[in-house]
Each structure stands twice: as C-alpha cells, then as structure tokens.
Design a protein around this nucleic acid. Structure first.
Lengths: 111, 111
DNA sequence: TGACTATATAACTACATAGTAATATAGTGT
DNA sequence: ACACTATATTACTATGTAGTTATATAGTCA
C-alpha cells in the first residue's frame, strides 16, 4: 500500500465509497447466493426501482457487480466474491467495537 | 453478514465511508509505521492543518484511530491493524481491474 | 404496429462533507 | 500574566449523491 500513487489511491477510495452506503451493502448481500434481476433487488432492498437502478449502476461502474440483460430483465451478479471478505472483516471490527462500547456503558451504569 | 440488521449495516457503511477518501487513506498509510502527531500528518498529507484535523476526528469517531495528547501535541495511532488487510484486499481488486482494463484497451488499439 | 413490462435516465430537492480562512482552545516556558 | 506553539473548531463555499417523481428506452407478445 505504501507504494500507491495518488491516482491509485483515488481508485481505492472509490471502491470503498461503493461500499459506504447501507442500501448498496444490502444489495451486495442479496447477491451472495447468486444473480438477481432489478425487480428482485428492488423488492429485497425496499427502495424505489429508480433508486436501486442508480445504486446498481454505481456498483457496476466501480467494478463490484456484473450486468447481463436477458429478455426484458437485467441480471446483476457479484464481480469478485472477495468483496465479502472485506465485509466480514469490517463486521468483525464493528461488532467488536459495539461490544466494547456496550461494556463501557455498563461500567457507567452500574446501579 | 446475512444476519445484519439495518442498524449494524449502517455502522458497516460508516466504517467504509471513513475509508472512502484519499486523504484519509494517506493518513492511515502514514500511521502504518507507528503513531504520528498532527503536524507530521499535515506535512505528509500535503493538506492544511485544519483539514487534516477534521479527517482525524472523523477517523477517531468511526473508531479507526486512537488519540492521545502529550504535551502540546496530539498523537494518533491505528486502532486496529486489520484495517490494512482491508486496504490490501481492495488494492488487489483495483490493480487487477486496472490491468484488465489496460488489456482491453490494448486489444482495441492494435494497429 | 400497439399494448405491456422491465429497466434506465432526467430533473429536482435535501443533505453530507471536503476544503479554506479565521479564530478559539490548551499546553509550555518565560 | 504573557508570548508561543500545536490542535480543534467555526463559518463558509462548492460539490457529490441519496432519494423522489416523471419520463424515456428497450424487449416481448398479441
């Protein structure tokens, strides 16, 4: 990482930016067990179709999902499953932190 | 990851958001070989002191760095080194993608 | 062709934040 | 107390984007 120039750094930041939104994480999560079309993802995410479509095009632009249209549907799938490793790592961090904070809170709430 | 509720999902997204900015990545990178104070990080990042200070407080808020003031200086250090695993994973993805794109470009540019 | 369905896009509002310049705060040494 | 240094904060501008509504585009079938 220390050898990264500013340009590559910007790419990496963009990749993280693609993951920095709850709805997009939900979509990626939904794709974990295989491709889904926009309609399905709209239902799962609970957002409007237009909104999901925008999120999907952003995910595709940053290279996180692949797009394939078949018939009147467009199917999206994970471009590289290693993205889930990222999410797991972050989940661990976040969960650990939430536990820690809960413990700190407990300390101050004793009686 | 599939068991995450919306609240935790938001935390994870926030964690990624902390990483979704080139200057903050640069700062984290600079902290890889140990703690540094704000002045040092200002110089390394090439940003204004105010700007670096804001980025640092964001990183601290999301739990990526620890803050310790000694004398008139404030030293920041990495809260959990596993953040570098994340960066490596993303770097790999990004580099692979750039290589792929370069190859595609080559295909179209053959004489 | 025309009706129907699925997806994408455009125009818009609201909000978050990166960056700047100026100022406030806090610790140190005189 | 005062000057000095390091860091944080405030007020501001500019930009990006999440979400909405309405509309456009494209494929399918009668």
């Amino acid at each position: 990482m220390s050898k990264l120039n500013d340009n590559t750094l910007a790419y990496v930041a963009d990749y993280f930016k693609a993951l920095a939104e709850p709805t997009r994480l939900k979509v990626l999560n939904a794709l974990q067990d295989g491709e889904k079309n926009v309609g399905q993802l709209t239902e799962i995410s609970g957002c409007s179709q237009a909104n999901v479509s925008k999120h999907l095009s952003m995910l595709a632009q940053y290279g996180l999902v692949k797009r394939e249209s078949r018939g009147t549907s467009v199917f999206y799938s994970i471009a590289d499953p290693s993205v889930y490793k990222l999410c797991e790592l972050v989940c661990d961090q976040v969960v650990n932190r939430l536990i820690q904070e809960a413990e700190v809170k407990k300390l101050f709430m004793v009686v």
